[in-house]
């Protein structure tokens, strides 16, 4: 990714396009995790990439790039959500859809055939754990510093939380259904 970033910074659009292909799935899930509907999430992701063109010359490492993109996506998603709430009419009908949360594990435990067991296990974890696991699933190479920025969790807490969430999920998956949430 470092090579792509360097080329994109020098103005190579094919490298930039490749970065878009690689990182858009993560940004999509970041936007969705802030509670935006699918259409608003697409707008937010597009806005983030367009905004990057202004700042790309200052971004020196792949880690900084991922962190920057995630922060901008979150900030823009909050902005959109806040505006939608402020404009929400009294009956709430028009904007109700906009703030539909992305599907939660609780929704999915009954919905998805293939991954039922996984959703059922995830549903038993805290929201924090679900958020950490979702981020790690899309970018397993994230460092603690990046995860810390991404999730607004103190850097020192990331390691223990990451470990605890994974261990807990794995033990639930290997047959334990004890609820120690």
């Amino acid at each position: 990714m470092g090579r792509l970033l360097e080329a994109a910074r020098a103005g190579d659009r094919e490298s930039l396009n490749e970065l878009v292909r690689e990182l858009t799935p993560l940004l999509w899930h970041v936007a969705r995790a802030q509670g935006l509907d699918r259409e608003s999430s697409s707008d937010v992701v597009q806005h983030t990439w367009l905004t990057l063109l202004k700042s790309i010359s200052d971004i020196r490492s792949p880690a900084a790039l991922t962190g920057w993109l995630v922060q901008v996506t979150k900030r823009e998603a909050w902005r959109v959500a806040r505006r939608a709430r402020a404009e929400e009419p009294v009956d709430g009908a028009e904007f109700a859809d906009l703030l539909d949360r992305s599907p939660t594990p609780e929704d999915l435990a009954t919905a998805s055939e293939t991954h039922r067991e996984l959703w059922a296990a995830l549903a038993q974890l805290s929201e924090r754990c679900q958020e950490i696991l979702r981020a790690m699933a899309f970018l397993p190479e994230l460092t603690y510093t990046e995860l810390s920025a991404l999730l607004n969790i103190a850097r020192g807490s990331i390691g223990p939380m990451r470990g605890r969430c994974l261990v807990r999920l794995r033990s639930l998956l290997t047959g334990g259904v004890r609820d120690e949430r």
């Binding site: 878009v20 999509w28 990439w49 599907p103 999915l108 996984l118 995830l122 699933a137 998956l173």
Partner: peptide
Amino acid sequence: VLRQLRGAWTEADPVPPDLVETVHFALE
């Protein structure tokens, strides 16, 4: 487990198929 999670989330909440193309067009 992370691979399974990624698969599950991708299936449940897929990135819109035209999103990458739209971003490419916008950046062009």
